[in-house]
Simulated scan of single mutants.
Amino acid sequence: MPEKSPATEIDALGELMVIQSAMQRQFLRIMLRRMASDLPAFDAEMFLAELELMRESLAEGRDRSAIHGFASAEWQRLSEMALEAIASTRAKPETH
């Protein structure tokens, strides 16, 4: 059985970035959920519409590099997280 090579600094940096990204998403999810539920003037539909406009703007870019692809995918994940966070603050229809 081949020996496992020791983790490199690049591996450690990648792991740190994944952890940081997950923590930032959790923080944003909590903040957005609190805003949507606690602020009467928060217009969730307008917020989501603006997110969609920004996503479309990013998708229209001509640069199709790997970084652009990563940015598009990350924006999609953040938009989905925002939609889920806002949806969690809305009353669910009752079923009898």
Results as ranks from 00 to 15, higher is better:
1 M>F: 08
1 M>V: 04
2 P>F: 09
3 E>K: 13
4 K>I: 03
5 S>C: 02
6 P>V: 11
6 P>S: 10
6 P>E: 14
7 A>T: 10
8 T>P: 01
10 I>M: 08
12 A>Q: 13
12 A>L: 14
12 A>H: 07
13 L>M: 11
13 L>T: 15
14 G>P: 05
14 G>M: 11
15 E>F: 00
15 E>W: 03
15 E>G: 12
16 L>V: 06
17 M>A: 10
18 V>Y: 00
19 I>E: 14
20 Q>T: 08
21 S>P: 01
21 S>T: 02
22 A>Q: 02
23 M>Q: 06
23 M>H: 05
23 M>W: 03
23 M>G: 01
23 M>P: 02
23 M>L: 10
25 R>N: 05
27 F>S: 10
27 F>I: 08
28 L>I: 07
29 R>N: 04
30 I>M: 01
30 I>H: 02
32 L>Q: 03
32 L>T: 01
32 L>H: 06
33 R>L: 00
33 R>S: 05
36 A>C: 06
37 S>Q: 05
37 S>G: 05
40 P>V: 02
41 A>K: 00
42 F>G: 10
44 A>M: 04
46 M>N: 05
47 F>D: 03
47 F>E: 02
48 L>K: 03
48 L>G: 03
49 A>N: 05
52 E>F: 03
53 L>K: 04
54 M>E: 12
54 M>W: 10
58 L>N: 13
58 L>I: 07
58 L>F: 09
59 A>F: 10
59 A>W: 07
60 E>T: 07
60 E>L: 08
61 G>F: 06
61 G>E: 12
64 R>H: 13
64 R>V: 09
64 R>P: 06
64 R>C: 08
65 S>R: 11
66 A>I: 12
66 A>T: 14
66 A>R: 14
66 A>Q: 11
67 I>A: 15
67 I>L: 14
70 F>L: 10
70 F>N: 08
71 A>E: 13
71 A>S: 13
72 S>N: 14
73 A>N: 11
74 E>N: 09
75 W>Q: 09
75 W>E: 04
76 Q>C: 00
76 Q>E: 10
76 Q>W: 12
76 Q>K: 11
76 Q>T: 15
78 L>Q: 03
78 L>F: 06
78 L>R: 07
79 S>E: 03
79 S>V: 05
79 S>Y: 01
80 E>L: 01
83 L>Q: 15
83 L>H: 14
83 L>P: 07
83 L>C: 11
84 E>T: 10
86 I>V: 14
86 I>P: 00
87 A>R: 12
87 A>C: 05
87 A>H: 09
88 S>I: 09
90 R>P: 07
91 A>S: 11
91 A>M: 15
92 K>H: 09
92 K>D: 10
95 T>W: 15
95 T>E: 14
96 H>N: 11
